[in-house]
Each structure stands twice: as structure tokens, then as C-alpha cells.
Computed example of a mutant assay.
Amino acid sequence: MSTETADTGAEATSGSVLDAVVSEQRRELWARAWKRFISRPMSVVGLAIIIVVVASAILAPYIAPYPQHAGKFTDFANALQGPSVAHPLGTDHIGRDILSRILFGYRLSLMMVAVVLGFGVPVGVVLGLVAGYYGGWVETIIMRMTDTALALPPLVMALAITSALQPTLWNAMLAIAALWWTWHTRLVQSIVSSERNEEYVQAAELSGAGPVHIMFREILPNTLSPILVKVTLDAGFVILIGAGLSFIGVGVQPPRPGLGTMVSQGTGYLPDSWWFAVFPGLAIFVLVMGFNMLGDGLRDVFDVEVNR
């Protein structure tokens, strides 16, 4: 019994040492990745844009010149005023400060990104892990279901759902999230299929580890880099689709300050009151550009290819 106990203790010690070595290697990998990232100016600029926008959205009630203009407010005496000291980006057709509404509009756009990706990424990752690990008929069912969903353009599907339901922000987010898991399912399934026969997976199976442990503790960490890159790039697409839905009137509804809604309202006053449509459009451009620059930088850092 003493010999068996000693062997068991030795195996446990060996396993803990191996885990510590693997953890140290992963920390070194992320440290090298961070050094490569900060060496790319465009990536750093993209990260800075996202940080500034997120901070501005969070602090909007405190830094917006006129926070009350984000809701039900009218001031026809100051309608369609051009950029000035009092209103740096001008006012809209009913006298509301455009800068204040853009800051609150960023809140809605980022909330849409969080909800859509917060639902789509976990669902897609889990389905991709299961399909890639088990293979066979399980993979066939999941991937055929994924291919069917991929045949439907996200914007068209979102437009159909929001048209059938009441056009609100939450229904718009639900409509976009309904198909977003498909891209991550395909990405993760392709990675797991190639990782399935690697030595570390076989070693985990021989040691008696179950499928759940292998998928989430062994394989999943090796898919985090491409998933992170794709999430960053997807954020820009989600913002554009959400703005598109708001532009045609089935997304964020007035008086809430949706960026797409503001552009749509402003187009009716071009070219005389150009600031009404141009500045909200630039706000969308800056936010999407920031996510794309950050995503491109991460893709170069981790040396992964993410197709859409």
C-alpha cells in the first residue's frame, strides 16, 4: 500500500509540475504577443480609439454637454444650429445637441455589440467544439445546420425579424444574434478538427480525462487567439448592421439616440445642415475603424487567418 501511495503522490506531483510549466509557457506567449502588438502603431491607435469610445459611452451622463438631449427634449429656437462653442457639433432639427446624442448613441451601439457577441460567441464556440471533437454524425448535423443558417445574409434575416416583430433595440439585437453564432461554429470546428489528433489531446485521453475536460481545458485554450481576433472584427460588422437597421427605421427608435437613426434624419437636411448627418456618420466610421484596426493588429500578432 505504501508503494502505491508513493506512486500516486509522484504522479500528482508530476501532473502539477506539468500544469505549472504549461501555464508559464502560456504566460510567456501572451507576453510576447503583447510586445508584438504595441510595436504596431496602427494596432495601438485602434486600441486607443476603442478605449476612448468605451470610456466616453460609460461617462456620457457626466461628460455630455447636454445629457437631457439624449431623451425627450425639444428646443426649436436652436434647431439646426451649426457647430459653435455652445454646440461643438451643431444641433439637430428639433434643437438637440448632436455631440451629446452621439455619446449616448455610442452606448447603444456598444450594448448591441455586447449582447449579440455575448450570445453568439459562446453558442458558436460550444457547437464548434462538439462538432470538431466528436466528428461523425454529430459533426454532420451541426455543420449542415450551420451551413443552412449561413446561407441567410445576417442583414436580410435581421430585417425580416425586426419587421415581423415590434421595431425596438432589443428586437434588433435578437435579430442580429439569431445568426451570428454560425461564423464562430465554423471557425472553431475547423480548428478543433485539426487539433483533435494532436499528441496533447491523445495524452489527455490516455490519462483518463473526459470529453468535457479535453474540449474546454485542453483544446479551447488553443482556439482563443483566432476567437479573440474574430470577435474584434465582428464588433465592427455588428455596429454597421445595427446602424443599417436604425437607418431604415427598424432598429433604435426615436427619441433614443441611435447613430443610424441620426444619419437617417440628417439626410433630409443635406446639404445645408450638413453637420446633422455627417457627424453621426463619422462617429460610426471612427468606431468601426477602431475595431477593425484593433482586429487587424491582433490577427498579425497571433498570426492567424480569420475569414468571413
Rank of each mutant, 00 (worst) to 15 (best):
F276S: 04
D19F: 06
R40Q: 12
Y62C: 04
A70Y: 11
A131M: 09
L155S: 11
M262A: 00
A172Y: 01
T74N: 01
I284P: 02
G136Y: 07
L152E: 02
R144F: 14
L47E: 02
T74R: 02
A175E: 06
G210C: 12
L259F: 01
K72I: 13
G71F: 12
L282F: 11
S193T: 08
G260M: 02
L152N: 00
L18A: 13
H93I: 02
S273Q: 13
A277G: 07
A86D: 11
G249E: 10
G251I: 04
S163I: 09
W170E: 14
P255K: 08
Y134P: 10
V44H: 06
L99P: 13
L294F: 02
A283V: 07
R217M: 15
S264K: 11
I241R: 00
L117C: 08
W170A: 12
T91H: 01
V188C: 03
A151V: 03
F119Y: 14
V53F: 15
R308A: 12
P154E: 15
K230E: 09
D92Q: 03
A48K: 13
L165T: 13
W180N: 14
M262E: 02
F76K: 08
L89Q: 14
W137S: 04
L259S: 00
L224I: 08
E205C: 01
G260L: 04
L150R: 05
V130Q: 06
R107I: 08
F237D: 07
M293C: 06
P154A: 15
V231L: 12
A114W: 08
P153K: 06
G208C: 08
W34V: 04
V286H: 10
L240E: 02
M111E: 13
R36I: 05
M157H: 00
